[in-house]
């Protein structure tokens, strides 16, 4: 725990991928979890949007005594409101998700905030190891579970990856009892977004494997050839050493053993 550091986690209303219902957003939940693990209940959790949303209680149920809601309508831009809020608060660490689950989901918010505040941004954080002497050591999540260690100067903004510690269970009682500090703010309508046409996502066509063949015989061959990979190699009567060697060769070939 780093009790002297001022940490803010930004949360949004998520969307369940199957039912489409509002929920605690996956990455935002992790941002709150990471914040809680850093500073415990001293964490400030901020939401920009409607103050009556029941999902806010799901965040609060993670053990937050209170939350701050910068109340504005759905069609408004969160950026100016947040920028002025953060400029006033001057936190050391701001945690967000990588991409929101509703709205444009562009993932630009942390970048725009960082640009507006002039702070460094660390993308896709898996863990904040420690914060000491105005420096934080942060682990970035790389694909396939790999990690990169980065040292960053406070204050900074970090977007929290799915590889970070999963958000703790939300408890009904504390969520219900948490206080919401609702602040009304001068909001700006996101004009550009109003021009957009939104529609339910069309399923994307699967790319077909197009066979470029010059002759009919080649096309015939391509169409009739058995798919590769059905029925692998089976080794029965070789010695254990040979069998193990065959497996090991495959591992080397696939470059999983280096």
């Amino acid at each position: 725990m780093q009790p002297n550091v001022n940490v803010v986690s930004l949360v949004s209303i998520g969307r369940h991928p199957q039912s489409g219902r509002s929920r605690r957003a996956e990455q935002d939940g992790r941002a709150v979890e990471l914040g809680l693990s850093l500073v415990g209940e001293a964490l400030t959790v901020v939401h920009v949007g409607e103050d009556q949303d029941p999902v806010l209680r799901q965040y609060a149920g993670m053990g937050l005594p209170s939350m701050t809601v910068l109340s504005q309508g759905k069609e408004c831009d969160a950026l100016p409101v947040l920028t002025s809020f953060l400029k006033a608060q001057l936190p050391s660490v701001v945690l967000t998700g990588v991409r929101s689950e509703s709205g444009e989901s562009s993932g630009m918010l942390p970048y725009l905030l960082a640009e507006a505040l002039g702070w460094p941004l660390v993308p896709r954080v898996a863990e904040i190891l420690h914060i000491k002497d105005g420096q934080a050591e942060v682990l970035l999540a790389l694909p396939r579970g790999q990690r990169r260690s980065v040292q960053v100067t406070l204050p900074f903004i970090a977007s929290v990856d799915n590889a970070a510690q999963e958000a703790r269970q939300t408890a009904f009682g504390p969520g219900l009892r948490a206080t919401l500090h609702v602040e009304t703010v001068d909001s700006v309508v996101d004009d550009a977004a109003i021009q957009w046409e939104m529609s339910a996502a069309k399923p994307r066509p699967k790319r077909l494997k197009v066979v470029k063949a010059k002759t009919a015989a080649d096309r015939m061959k391509a169409a009739t050839a058995k798919p590769v990979g059905g029925g692998g190699k089976i080794m029965k009567n070789e010695t254990p050493a040979e069998k193990a060697q065959a497996i090991f060769d495959l591992l080397l070939e696939e470059k999983v053993v280096r």
Partner: peptide, 12 residues
């Protein structure tokens, strides 16, 4: 482009 975690198409 896709928006709202892949559930919507935004045309612009």
């Amino acid at each position: 482009s896709r928006g709202a975690s892949g559930s919507q198409d935004i045309s612009r």
